[in-house]
Amino acid sequence: MIVSNFDNSQVPHISSGIDLHVCSAWMGVASWRWLANDDNCGICRMPFDGCCPDCKMPGDDCPLVWGQCSHCFHIHCIMKWLNSQQVHQLCPMCRQEWKFKE
C-alpha cells in the first residue's frame, strides 16, 4: 500500500522509458594542450604544455609562436635566441631564416 500524495500534474507524464535531463550542468574535466607538432620546446626542452623556464604560468602567459619553417617554440625562448644572434636570425632547428608565421 502506497499512499502517494505526489501531484502527478507537476511531472510531465511519460508513457514509457525514463526521461533524463541533465538539468543544470555537465561539469566536465578537460586538459588543454597546444596544437603543435612536437611535445617539447626545441630550445628549453620543457613541454609546450608547461612553460618556459622564466615563466610561472603556462598558457596565456607563456604562449607559443610558429615560424614559417613550421617549427614552434615558447615565445620567450625564441626571442631570447633571436636576440642572442648577431648576424642572421635563424631557426635553431632547421637553420633557415626565422620568420614569424603570419
Binding site: 511531472v11 510531465p12 511519460i14 525514463i18 526521461d19 533524463l20 535531463h21 541533465v22 538539468c23 543544470s24 550542468a25 555537465w26 561539469m27 566536465g28 574535466v29 578537460a30 586538459s31 588543454w32 594542450r33
Partner: peptide, 16 residues
C-alpha cells in the same frame, strides 16, 4: 581541449 569524460560531476533530474 582533451576531455576526460570519466571525471567530473553531472547535475541531473530523473523524471519517472
Amino acid at each position: 581541449l582533451v576531455w576526460k569524460p570519466h571525471l567530473g560531476l553531472v547535475h541531473m533530474v530523473v523524471n519517472l
